[in-house]
Design a binder for these strands. Sequence first.
DNA 1: AATACGGGGTT
DNA 2: AACCCAGTATT
Length: 376
Amino acid sequence: MPGIADKTDITVEINFDVAAFRSGLLEWFDKNARRLPWRSEKNWYVVLLSEFMLQQTQVEQALPYYKKFIAQYPDINKLARADEQDILRLWAGLGYYSRARNLLKTAKILKDQYNSRFPGDYNQVIKLPGIGKYTASAILSIAFQKPLPVVDGNVIRVLTRLFAIDKDIRNNKVINSLTGLAQQLLDNRQPGNHNEAMMEIGALICKVKNPVCNICPLFDFCAAGKGNNWYNFPFKSSPVSKRILRELAYIFSDNNHLVLAQRPAKGLLASMWECPSVILADEETIEGKLKKLFLADTPDDNYVISPLFRHSYSHILLHYQAIHINSAIENYCSKDHWQRDYQKLENIPFGEISNYPIHTAHMKLINWFLKTKSQR
DNA sequence: AATACGGGGTT
DNA sequence: AACCCAGTATT
């Protein structure tokens, strides 16, 4: 409806010298950019790999994973030939595992359908698995100098502060407006450096807490900086609260084997490996669950129960505990006892555990087990 | 438009 | 325990 603004629409006038903004930003970036491995040799493959890892992930956290990956899969053809389980094993601990599976899918598509090259057309790029608006614009601008603006969490913070935008950033319309703003600010002559610079400002200067406005090259252009009220931006409405999940995990182990299970191919932690486990009903106790699960023999005194662990996912709070039973799984349970439709259940020699992609929560259980085992 | 999807950090 | 950060896919 022309002329009638939605309450979430924002219209922002850029009332400063855009050329001065761009040159100040780029000058700062030249001097202060972190030396990161994916910045040293800028081919599209390293940009692709790093951008996948940096989705929802800080540089510091992604760095060791990037080094492992680039050593093992130095080019797109090596990656395209990889096994999904090997990719997941290298990704284990980094989280959001669909990124790893989508990275492999994209690599295969690039090899098979694009002659191992990267398409230059945004509309083709955006169709690749795991590549959305941000990643498409990031790769095309950084690796191919296409004039496309990126809007990630850092840029959202920088822009809302620059223009004192207090609208809820959960609203997609607000993000669209910020994208328009980023487009106007973008330096079309070096869009890659400009985009990286905006994100680097967000990471190093315009931080969530304690931004260092006094050394910010954008201070003269910044409404929140000059108003000394950076803490008002960006505004984000409260998240929905997490539900609590209670879980009992089983460490079936003789002195040199451990039983691991592969989770279903869809859903939470898809295809990752873990100690076979069951979700407890609301009022269910561990002891009650033990009695229900075991066939004929309830384990007697030959078991140990771990302390309570907690693990926080983006939408779930997991409370979990493990029972260690000093035996192979066959002595107590069959595969049918697990309500979860595990893809596989295997008895694994200790030395081969590290070959399996194990998610973080259960890695903590296994570490607890291996550590306490030697003490008893 | 809302929700699923990890892991790490600080308060 | 409750807060924070950070994109894509699905419904």
